[in-house]
Design a binder for these strands. Structure first.
Lengths: 211, 211
DNA sequence: TCGAAACTGAACCAATCGGTTTAAACTGAG
DNA sequence: CTCAGTTTAAACCGATTGGTTCAGTTTCGA
């Protein structure tokens, strides 16, 4: 019906249910882990027959890695949050801390983290993929900003990577542990603000220029 | 043969192979997780028949929780490292950082952490047990020291729990992530010292008294 | 409207799972 | 030695696993 030529659709590979399958795989794998997930469950969750599943993926392992890769790259784009490279550190850090905490406390991040950690020796590439798309990427962004801030004389830093890692770690303080061990899953603004303020203040106490 | 009365031996419960069984359970569970571990594997690893296994534990789940509890309490005693409560912060922090890093980078801690995280929603008590025996216990110890240091006027801290958490987090910077995702498992003294010095310097920049 | 490709549901397979049973062998105190 | 309690190996159970097959239905571009 469309006069304009159909765009070739980036890699439908075989059929039209590819994403549907991966969605089902994500749901079950993130809930039960690799061994705990049964292929029948995945087919049911995907709303697809088992034969269709196996027409897309030769076996369960490849189903898992495909799903993990997709979720890691999604996480990567979520981590690519905009940083105003020209704003002063106190502002940028506070803002970045808030976003970072919101991410690491999210149900999604928790689940994919658990699976990646649990299966990282069954799937050696998996840990690397998560690391690259999450912590490493975030560190690079923060370090970039810190470099520019130093050029403006706003901070005094020698080891930018270490500083960026330290800031990210400061943002986790207790919150992350409580979440990942299932002790707490809702956090009040007060709890979060306490950690944010603590992280920013400590970080600037070390690296900030007294103005 | 012993004239002195036999001490009643704390809870041999049934037989003499209790520890042997738990050792086998640990080996397999920590390697493969709960679902990934087969009872036959555990029996083989324990050097014990499957019937014996089931004479100690009514099912696989209880076998797992018993093993997890034992390992958590072992971890707890490992965390109970001696802190010289009278020494100055720069010294104590450096020393504590070194020990803490050595612990969190150890193969044992990595494995039990993975299992606890992975199975913490299948076994809700598990996450709490790990948290209590590890992070929470360590924080309490550090906070205790910081309180005494403040009494001596060596540090300026209001929120001791937050400060302790921050210090512990600073010690992880990157090292821990690289280890837990299987990217790196041997760390040079230089890598570790860089993080230790960074943690101590940043922490004291915020909380230390200029003397 | 036609036909190939995609999809379905269910039956089916061998293997493995957690767990039980049994009859025989081992252990150690009295 | 005796005897009760432990331990053993192996056979066994029903359920579930990852994976295959196939005859039939749906989908959709030409």
């Amino acid at each position: 019906m469309n006069i304009i030529a159909e765009q070739p659709r980036a890699k439908p590979r075989k059929g039209r249910k590819y994403d549907q399958v991966l969605d089902g795989a994500r749901e079950v794998f993130l809930l039960s882990g690799f061994e705990g997930a049964s292929v029948d469950d995945i087919a049911r969750a995907a709303g697809v027959s088992k034969a269709t599943l196996y027409s897309y993926f030769p076996d369960k392992r490849l189903m898992f890695t495909a799903m993990a890769e997709r979720e890691c790259s999604r996480q990567a784009s979520a981590a690519l949050q905009v940083i105003d490279m020209t704003a002063p550190p106190a502002l940028v850090l506070r803002q970045t801390a808030g976003r970072l905490i919101r991410i690491i406390l999210s149900d999604f991040s928790q689940r994919i983290f658990r699976v990646c950690v649990a299966e990282s020796d069954r799937f050696p590439e998996l840990g690397q993929a998560f690391y690259d798309s999450g912590p490493a990427l975030g560190r690079a962004r923060i370090a970039d900003y810190l470099r520019q801030a130093k050029a403006r004389g706003e901070v005094a830093i020698e080891d930018f990577e270490l500083a960026a890692d330290q800031f990210a770690e400061l943002c986790k303080a207790d919150l992350w542990a409580r979440a990942v061990f299932g002790i707490q899953n809702r956090f009040s603004d007060e709890e979060i603000d306490r950690v944010i303020e603590g992280a920013v203040t400590t970080f600037l106490a070390r690296y900030g220029m007294r103005d």
